[in-house]
Amino acid sequence: MYEIRFHGRGGQGGRMAAEAYALAAFLEGSYAVSFPFFGAERRGAPVRAFTRVDDKKIRIKTQVYEPDYVVVLDETLIETEDVLEGLKEDGMVIINTAKKPEEVRLSKPVKCATVDATSIALEILGRPITNTAILGAIAKATGRVSIDSIEKAIIEKFGARLGKEAGEKNAKAARVAYEKTLVGVAQGGKAFVPRKKWLPTVEEMPIGGATPAMETDAGLVGIGSFIENKTGDWRTFMPIIDKEKCIGCKFCWFYCPEGCISMEDGKASVDYDYCKGCGICANECPVNAIEMKREVRT
């Protein structure tokens, strides 16, 4: 049996990718299961999905903790979390990025395959939906299923929902990605500090779960504690405020869904720890003082 963990963002189709991969393996006579982690995350938030493949019926129903492969649909995720967590010693990570494997930096050196699935998707599908292109990269990097089966699975799964033509286009995106995938070794040495989690015992758990604002060894919990959840890593575009142009009208301050714009010396200022990059501020600014720029994370 081998196991794959998919990392993506809500709305990117990571779950569909995981399911389509399972279908491809099934078409080759394997037994395969796929499931998402059912969380409460909304569109844009980091999410995970899993696929297990074996040559006999898979009975285990737990989540995947020690995957053989990790697939990353959104490059920004490797900056904010250790995607290698639990990856088997000889495991491999497959990343959607324009970089070569040797240029990717992770927590440890590891077998790595890269493909610029975003560009491929934009070119073939006209939209940056990478969940089909990445499947071609998995086929190439792992050799576990053939690209033919991947194509068949995509046509069956996506074609049924989006129409025959869209199914074929998505299959083509996978084929092109298959051909363009590079395999090598990523660099290690990137440090991640895992966020501490408050795990109270029965005795420590507030009765009935009724919780005021409480300081714990894992930080603030309860009332007002979401302030500790930095949503800035959801962002792909970032608002840049031209302070010269800003007239201090506070419309952006009012409209910002995150409430992460404050006024400094009468000018708007963004707290990038929370900004999800929705672009409302730029769209609503009456003097066009805000521009959305593709963010480059290092």
Binding site: G209, P212, A213, G222, I223
Partner: peptide
Amino acid sequence: PMAIGTFTP
């Protein structure tokens, strides 16, 4: 202030 009955994982 206290939160009662929140969404719990």
